[in-house]
Amino acid sequence: MDALPVSTVTYDLGDQAFTDPDVTFFDRHPGKPVPMELAAVVHYPTDLGRTRHPLIVIEHGSWWSCIDRAARKPTGGWPCTRGEGSLRSYRGYGYLATSLAERGFVVVSISANAINAHVLGDAGYLARARLINRHLHMWQQLASTGRGPLRGTFVDPRTGREVRPRFRGRVDTRNVGTVGHSRAGKGVMWQASDKHRSEWPRGVRVRAVLPLAPVYFTPPGGSDRDTLVTKIPVKVITASCDGAVGEEGVQYVDDVEGRNPDASHESIAGGNHNHFNTRWSPGRIGGEDDAIDPCASKISAQEQRRRTRRLVATYFVETLQPSVDE
């Protein structure tokens, strides 16, 4: 299949547009719900045709949330203070989203800076799952009725002008894949788990999950129920030179051995943690190369992303694509 032409839009409902009563501050207002942003970048086939396209949601992990423009250094609060701009980690997977959209997927990469700034521990993974569910709820409303909070919010990132893609009837929210990088890797496992699937919005069905260089952070003897996925395919991708979290994410596959025949793991030899996200890589404010040293097999950022595109696209074509051709 030839690569489809791809268009890109963004939406931003505000830095404090969504609260969940179970997502509370760990720092300045303990016990008070954290207002979270609802912002994303969307890559989609320019010609949506007459079919419904599978939906993929990407969520970034824990990183700096803001940029001090004058000092050209990253900072960690949320919302960003005057003179600062947000560090848009959610825009760091454009290479991956474009590759998927070329194959017929609608890809939504969401911002999670409020969580990074104010929520820690298991509450942070719950928060990431609830944030995904909120975006999925909005997309279900838009795709089924043309209404809801997303109506009239799409903007061309090049011109800043409002655009109106015809997503109604063209996005299949019952055929969803999720990708989570780093801490969001555990976040998507939490959201997709057997224990938490009852929290999926009505009209939404997640059919495949992909933790990308995920954290694991479950102590020996601790319960894995919050992240146990036995009912849908799981593919864990790690990197052999990852100096941030290593390759412990393979444990998600080990946890379901004998219970999920569609759980698999693949390692990118020579890859590191931050090169999965272009905004976290050297050359950007706050970006750094976190490969373990020495790492004899280390590969370039470009090669790592090329391999990531191939692995991720192959996985979702196998697990989600059939609905496009029905």
Rank of each mutant, 00 (worst) to 15 (best):
G246D: 08
K195Q: 13
D254F: 12
D262K: 13
I268C: 13
A269F: 01
P165L: 11
V229H: 01
H273K: 14
G169P: 09
S198M: 03
C241S: 04
V253S: 14
A208V: 00
S281E: 14
V209W: 05
Q191Y: 00
S182P: 07
G221C: 03
G185A: 11
Q251P: 03
N175M: 08
R151T: 07
V179C: 14
P220L: 08
P165Q: 12
T238L: 05
G283L: 06
A213Y: 07
G169Q: 13
D254L: 15
V229M: 04
R207L: 05
P201M: 02
D194S: 02
M189R: 09
V204G: 00
I268K: 10
R183K: 15
N277C: 14
A269N: 03
F154T: 02
L150V: 00
N260C: 06
H181L: 13
G243Q: 09
G283I: 04
V188P: 06
V215Q: 13
I232T: 02
V188D: 06
R279Y: 07
G221N: 03
K195D: 05
P282Y: 07
V250I: 14
L150F: 00
P157C: 12
P149H: 02
E162D: 12
V206C: 01
K195P: 03
P219K: 06
R279A: 06
W200G: 02
V256S: 05
A269R: 07
R279N: 08
S281A: 15
G270H: 02
R164M: 04
A263E: 09
T238H: 05
R174M: 06
Y252C: 13
D254M: 11
F217M: 11
V245Q: 12
G187R: 07
R174Q: 13
S182A: 14
V163K: 14
T218F: 03
V234K: 06
